[in-house]
């Protein structure tokens, strides 16, 4: 997975101090990517949310308890991408032109090995065939095809938008696209502008500079997968908890 520094490597920087956990990114993502509404029996563990806002708590009791929200989508790992190497039939590809880890649902046969491999739980299996209320299929995004049950899908930084931006640039005779031309749905929908998006290979880009900020951290950085999604927080406890994972979270059992 050689990184070609001449081609863009898209990344995201999320300011968790600004994130209010409203969930706009989650629904905007679902609208953009034609993710269906939940089956009545779906749960937190079987639902499909390419972008999922999770709550990170400081672990203290009321009223000292504080929390921030971490919008976690595919972290677009740059090296040793855990899901790319495990897929038996090349249904996951690392696009060297954009740094985006792409899932090809039509090639996926639903073994869910990649779901197991992803430490960020950013991959979602279609436990049900997608169903939209009658007529609502008219609101589907023409740029993204729908998926059937039994395949895995995940965030691809709204790859359809990248292609549209590239096509537009090509039509105008440009070879590169500006950061503003290509923003994933989550970033566009964020009401507090907590989500920054752009080209990490460009040292002058917004995300490039923010990613080098001392407030920046990444999830499970030590695994060496070089995620391209950064988080920003000024709060020390957030950094402390993210660094010292296993000791804090074993507080209770998940439901299910």
């Amino acid at each position: 997975m050689e990184t070609n520094h001449t081609s863009p490597r898209y990344g995201m920087v999320i300011d968790v101090d600004r994130c209010t956990g409203c969930g706009n990114c989650m629904v905007a993502c679902a609208v953009e990517n034609n993710v269906p509404p939940a089956d009545p029996k779906a749960t937190e563990r079987t639902g499909t949310t390419w972008m999922r806002v999770s709550k990170l708590e400081n672990g203290l009791p009321f009223p000292e308890n504080r929390s921030v929200y971490l919008p976690v989508s595919c972290q677009q790992c740059d090296h040793h991408t855990p899901c790319v190497s495990v897929c038996p039939q090349n249904a996951v590809e690392y696009d060297t032109e954009s740094g985006i880890v792409a899932q090809i649902p039509v090639r996926c046969f639903g073994c869910r090995y990649c779901v197991t491999a992803c430490p960020y739980h950013a991959r979602y299996y279609n436990w049900w065939d997608p169903v939209w209320p009658e007529g609502m299929e008219k609101t589907l995004n023409p740029d993204v095809s729908t998926r059937m049950r039994g395949v895995v899908e995940k965030c691809n930084f709204c790859h359809g938008r990248l292609q549209a931006a590239r096509a537009k640039a090509a039509a105008e005779g440009r070879r590169t696209i500006a950061d503003a031309e290509y923003v994933p749905a989550c970033g566009e929908s964020c009401p507090t502008h907590a989500i920054h998006f752009g080209n990490l290979s460009d040292p002058n880009s917004d995300v490039s500079m923010l990613s080098k900020d001392k407030r920046a951290f990444r999830l499970l950085e030590e695994l060496g997968t070089e995620p391209k999604v950064y988080f920003l927080s000024e709060q020390d406890w957030v950094h402390a908890i993210v660094k010292n994972k296993i000791s804090t979270e074993l507080k209770g059992h998940g439901n299910g």
């Binding site: 190497s85 495990v86 897929c87 038996p88 039939q89 090349n90 249904a91 090639r107 996926c108 046969f109 639903g110 073994c111 869910r112 090995y113 299996y125 279609n126 059937m148 049950r149 039994g150 395949v151 895995v152």
Partner: peptide, 26 residues
């Protein structure tokens, strides 16, 4: 039964990812 789309299982032979342990297993 475990895979979501058994009818596509042959894709493993058609698009094998030799780095995948599961391809090796299959």
């Amino acid at each position: 039964v475990d895979v979501g789309q058994p009818l596509r299982a042959w894709f493993t032979f058609w698009h094998p990812n030799v780095h995948s342990m599961l391809a090796e297993v299959t």
